[in-house]
Simulated scan of single mutants.
Amino acid sequence: MPTEWKLFADLAERAGDKHVTVEAGAGDTVGDAFEELLEEAPALEGRVLEDGELRSQINVLRNGTNVLVEEEGLATVLEAGDELALFPPVSGG
């Protein structure tokens, strides 16, 4: 079952859409889905990667939970129906 990424702010602009569906599904990892996202929307790569690694300011959420902080990072295993989201750095002040 495909998984949908929700993209926010300039990430959606770069990808050309706020929603990108990838083939990764239950049993795959968030990292697998992330790689497929970059294949579907290569314009994101320069914004979210630095030297081939995920930029530290980028937030990756699975069902509203930041996988980089509260789960197993990109190794987090997907379950059927998971919603993934990618947020750029949030600036405030």
Results as ranks from 00 to 15, higher is better:
E83P: 00
V69C: 01
G46Y: 00
A26M: 04
D32Q: 12
L61W: 04
E79K: 13
D17F: 00
G92V: 06
T3K: 10
G46F: 02
A75E: 15
V30T: 06
R14E: 11
G27D: 04
R55W: 03
Q57P: 00
G31I: 12
F34D: 02
A26C: 09
R62S: 06
G93L: 06
E35G: 11
I58N: 01
L54C: 03
A24V: 10
A9T: 10
G16E: 02
T76M: 10
G27R: 09
S56V: 02
N63G: 08
P88G: 03
G73N: 08
V20L: 09
D17M: 02
A24K: 05
Q57E: 13
F34G: 07
P88Y: 03
V60M: 05
A75H: 10
F87G: 03
P88D: 07
L86S: 05
N59M: 15
G81M: 06
A75W: 01
A75L: 12
T21F: 05
N66H: 14
N66Q: 11
E45R: 15
E83V: 13
L7E: 01
L61D: 02
L61Y: 12
G16R: 03
N66K: 07
E71H: 11
V67Q: 08
L84T: 08
L44P: 07
E79G: 14
A33Q: 10
D82A: 10
A9Q: 02
